[in-house]
Design a protein around this nucleic acid. Structure first.
Length: 349
DNA sequence: AAGTCGGGGCG
DNA sequence: CGCCCAGACTT
């Protein structure tokens, strides 16, 4: 049997029941594909279910506030996916007059849709013979065919796309694409692949040569930098003892764009109380600071892919009134990074 | 071609 | 602690 035949055969016996496998609605398939980019099925599934329930159609998503989309996305990471998702929904309702793009080329024009996602949607929904190449496919192909070209090099990306296209089954592309990914996730896993029980173990080059644990080859990891965050949590009590604080939206280029956070002082190194007292005047210009004290004794180190955020939360009691204040009960309504969400959850306002 | 963008799970 | 996850976009 051919490579694709064995993959398909394995898939029909071993595939998981997943919510997006019940439909070929391009809107829902697109949703699932964006959510699952660089994200495990287990982590993405509850988000998929919430999105489909909250926004049953692409029009519903387009009509939502970005704020609501980000809130629903909170905790999934790579928030540009959520912003692009919303923008793409508006493109579908505008430029495509509400009809979801129905071929690879049109799909590629949507924000946040690259070669992988366009291939996935066009094959699953419209039976177009475009082979997907995700992390699973890189692993399966590099092992089975014994290819050591780095998968994240320009040459590797081109080579594996071409190889994937050559060995796919164009007649069953909808199942084949999902099959090879499922096979990579369940059988040909990154660590401890199940070679002993593998339907391809008689013809796998990596297994024959003992290179399974060395493939695929991936170029050097990026180095991690450290940043020092000091969040100032202002607390103002009015005459009726209602409590207020401040959240502000992150703008500009870096992490967490358009998410909300407390007023922030970033520094080159860890700050002491006196530094924060000095800096707080600029942050709350005019307002009278009654007291500042540290919330977390030790720095909280929030780890991202290539940044370690050494974080201190400072509780700032304010006497005079604050501009832009929000009632503390409202803080949970804003889309915030996990670092902030964890603080809000633990802190008793 | 290299960097950037999150958060979580696993060995 | 390092690696990887149904990648895309910017520089």
């Amino acid at each position: 049997m051919s490579f694709s035949g064995k993959i398909l055969d394995w898939y029909h016996k071993n595939k998981r029941v997943l919510p997006w496998r019940k439909t070929t609605d391009p809107y829902k398939i697109w949703l699932s594909e964006i959510i699952l980019q660089q994200t495990r099925v287990a982590q993405g599934t509850p988000y998929y279910l919430r999105f489909v329930e909250t926004f049953p159609t692409v029009g519903d998503l387009a009509n939502a506030k970005e704020e609501q989309v980000l809130k629903l996305w909170q905790g999934l990471g790579y928030y540009s996916r959520a912003r692009n998702l919303h923008a793409a929904a508006k493109m579908v309702m505008g430029e495509y007059k509400g009809k979801f793009p129905d071929n690879y080329k049109k799909l590629l024009t949507l924000k946040g849709v690259g070669d992988y996602t366009a291939s996935a949607i066009s094959s699953i929904c419209f039976n177009e013979p475009h082979a997907v190449v995700d992390g699973n496919v890189y692993r399966v192909l590099s092992r089975y065919y014994g290819i050591d070209i780095p998968i994240n090099s320009t040459e590797g990306i081109k080579y594996f796309k071409s190889l994937a296209q050559k060995v796919m089954d164009p007649e069953n592309i909808r199942d084949y694409n999902q099959a090879i990914m499922e096979f990579g996730a369940m059988q040909c896993s990154p660590k401890k692949p199940l070679c002993l029980l593998c339907p391809l173990n008689e013809s796998c080059v990596a297994l024959e040569k003992g290179l399974v644990d060395q493939l695929p080859v991936k170029l050097k990891k990026t180095k991690v930098s450290s940043r020092y965050f000091n969040y100032l949590i202002p607390i103002y009590k009015d005459a009726k003892n209602n409590k207020f604080t401040i959240l502000q939206q992150r703008k500009g280029k870096g992490i967490w764009q358009n998410l909300w956070e407390f007023p922030l002082i970033e520094s080159k190194a860890s700050l002491e109380l006196n530094d924060v007292i000095a800096g707080s005047n600029a942050v709350f210009d005019g307002a009278v600071v009654k007291d500042i004290h540290i919330y977390n004794d030790m720095d909280i180190v929030h780890k991202l892919s290539h940044q370690h955020l050494h974080t201190k939360f400072w509780i700032v009691d304010i006497e005079a009134d604050l501009s832009n204040k929000i009632p503390v009960e409202k803080v949970t309504e804003f889309p915030v990074p996990v670092l902030i969400a964890d603080f809000i959850k633990a802190f008793k306002f």
